[in-house]
């Protein structure tokens, strides 16, 4: 599903190079639920951004669903994001001007689907997260947990094979966090591969695989399933 080979990322600001990631080796299989933990500033977010094609790596090879990302231009990467990846963010990132229907509609528009198909998908996915009745509401009229469920519906609307979640429960109270987490587990069981960054060990433990990032290096913590191994280069 996802293979990273010697991926590195460094930023150069004011002539000082900062290495955010160093020679990451990682393979994720279809159907995995991978949690990513690590201290602040360890490179978790950079890792997720590269995985989600929001940033490009400085060096190394990244294959997503068999395609070499380095060979894609901006619109190729946009197409990949649109068709294969779904995003869930800590601060939900719903577009405040758009109502729930239109928010879920955003990725479908870029997908170029016809009106009937879009409507069907939007209604289906909002229904799935229990918010079909509030389709015409603006995000500001919802609670945090509800907003995050809309964000999940939006991420799933394009039927991605791969879901990236960046601290999806970070802005939620524990009860809501639990409900969002079980939603993610259901999604994973239905076949979607998930990569989730979190700082909450108890949530991380619920994933099928756990990886740990520190100082730009990746290591696999336990290996519940015999699925596959990650080699963090020390």
């Amino acid at each position: 599903m996802l293979t990273m080979n010697k991926i590195s990322k460094s930023f150069i600001t004011d002539d000082v190079a900062t290495h955010a990631l160093r020679d990451i080796q990682l393979h994720v299989n279809e159907g995995d639920f991978v949690s990513v933990t690590g201290p602040s500033g360890s490179g978790k977010t950079t890792f997720l951004n590269i995985a989600g094609l929001l940033e490009t790596s400085t060096s190394g090879e990244y294959l997503l669903d068999g395609e070499d990302i380095a060979k894609l231009n901006d619109s190729g990467r946009s197409r990949m994001r649109n068709q294969k990846i779904g995003f869930i963010f800590q601060s939900f990132n719903l577009i405040p001007d758009l109502n729930l229907f239109d928010n879920v509609d955003v990725p479908l528009r870029y997908r170029g689907l016809n009106t009937a198909e879009r409507r069907k998908r939007i209604e289906h996915h909002l229904d799935q997260v229990g918010l079909a009745s509030r389709m015409k509401h603006l995000p500001s009229q919802l609670s945090g947990g509800q907003q995050q469920r809309v964000a999940i519906a939006r991420a799933l609307a394009t039927s991605p094979r791969f879901l990236l979640a960046d601290e999806p429960t970070g802005n939620l109270d524990s009860q809501m966090a639990q409900s969002v987490m079980s939603l993610l587990e259901d999604i994973n069981k239905a076949g979607t591969t998930i990569l989730m960054v979190t700082h909450d060990p108890s949530l991380a433990a619920r994933a099928t695989r756990q990886i740990y990032i520190k100082d730009g290096h990746v290591s696999e913590l336990t290996n519940k399933n015999s699925n596959l191994h990650v080699v963090g280069e020390a």
């Binding site: 929001l54 619109s75 994001r81 649109n82 068709q83 990132n93 405040p96 955003v106 870029y110 997908r111």
Partner: peptide, 13 residues
Amino acid sequence: EIGVRQALGASRN
């Protein structure tokens, strides 16, 4: 908003 749209598949075009 522009960032979100990019994440959801909008190209620069």
